[in-house]
Design a protein around this nucleic acid. Structure first.
Length: 355
DNA sequence: AATTCGGGGCG
DNA sequence: CGCCCAGAATT
């Protein structure tokens, strides 16, 4: 490994490490809690630190240990995860917590961690190094950006993955591997940023090849992107005379699986039309609810109805008004609600919701 | 190797 | 509005 580069980075980290709820400050001597490290790493998968902070605080306050989380109700965990996205993570989180609790604790090696649900190459390496001090090669988006710049790797992603891993391996020390991993990520998050890297204050400004050649903003090289397809669908926002909302728990094999949502067409499978979930005076609203996903854009026609007290919920179920909160449902469903609330049929003394 | 998974923040 | 984020699972 390259000792000079590694030492310079660790010295920088000792002075400039970010203070984060799941992190033990460098030099404090305290040992990180594997549960908190694992939970934070899962939440941080493709998710920004700013977005995770609040969720992490709420989760650890409500479930302080992996045993507590393992004993939680599925619906409670899904509701607490609502809004964070990538809901398969929440389902895998529970499965993992229960497997770990059954074993009496987290495994300490990268290979064993890798077998647990929701733990892939990155998370296994980061937990092994940060929580257990094992030397492991941690590669995330930050590491990819930093490596392609320091070593000026011009191969486009994802073909450059092996090359990146080899360089990351060459820099990973046997001492303080966890701090090293967090240091590269802090560097990527605060200095070696995607748009305008602050090379002037970078601990690696001297050895950085991309900076020397003036191409740091062009690293990493990304593959050309394709256009996002447009999809349409219909949703039914029904409200009983007593204020209860007609909602359904989405199947685990669908998008937003396990989450609460409005009944409607299977827009995640390209289905644009669907009959109402229950018979009623359904009327269409003029405004459609729009939402952008990573790989397609969605427009939903919103149907609303005020339903009689004796309405049978069928496949769906009625959630009483005092037990419903927009925080319980994914963002796209919140957006639908915001549109639905423009109708007096539904709004009726309800507080306004922002999408 | 390519696709499918959310959602927010920032230029 | 485009880009990217402490990626994983599936095909």
């Amino acid at each position: 490994m390259n000792a000079d580069l590694s030492n310079d980075l660790l010295a920088w980290y000792d002075r400039h490490a970010r203070t984060l709820p799941w992190r033990v400050p460098p030099g404090s001597g305290a040992k990180p809690d594997p549960y908190r490290v694992w939970l934070s790493e899962v939440m941080l998968q493709q998710t920004t630190v700013a977005a995770v902070k609040g969720y992490f605080e709420r989760f650890t306050a409500r479930w302080p240990t992996v045993e507590a989380l393992a004993a939680a109700e599925d619906a409670d965990v899904m509701a607490e995860w609502a809004g964070l996205g990538y809901y398969a993570r929440a389902r895998n989180l529970l499965a993992c917590a229960r497997a770990v609790a059954a074993c009496g604790g987290f495994p300490r090696t990268e290979a064993e961690l890798r077998t647990l649900p929701g733990i892939g190459a990155y998370t296994a390496a980061s937990v092994a190094s940060i929580a257990f001090g094992q030397r492991a090669v941690v590669v995330d988006g930050n590491v990819e950006r930093v490596m392609t710049r320091v070593f000026d790797i011009a191969t486009p992603l994802p073909a450059a993955r092996n090359e990146i891993r080899a360089y990351a391996d060459s820099l990973t020390p046997s001492e303080r591997p966890g701090d090293h991993a967090q240091a590269v990520m802090d560097l990527g998050a605060t200095i070696c940023t995607p748009r305008s890297p602050a090379c002037v204050v970078c601990p690696w400004r001297e050895p950085c090849l991309a900076r020397k050649r003036g191409v740091q903003k062009d690293r990493p090289v990304k593959p050309p992107k394709r256009e996002v397809p447009q999809r349409r669908g219909v949703v039914y926002v029904g409200r009983r005379e007593d204020g209860a909302w007609l909602l359904e728990t989405r199947g685990a094999d669908r998008m937003l699986g396990g989450m609460l949502g409005w009944p409607g067409s299977a827009w995640d499978r390209g289905e644009e039309e669907a009959p109402p979930p229950v018979a009623g005076p359904w009327t269409a609203l003029n405004t459609e609810a729009r939402h952008g996903f990573s790989h397609f854009a969605l427009g939903l026609r919103v149907m609303v109805a005020r339903l009689p007290l004796d309405t049978q919920a069928g496949q769906a179920s009625f959630v009483p008004a005092d037990r419903f909160s927009p925080d319980m449902i994914p963002t796209v469903m919140r957006r639908v609600l915001a549109v639905a609330l423009t109708s007096p049929l539904i709004a009726d003394a309800e507080p306004t919701v922002q999408a």
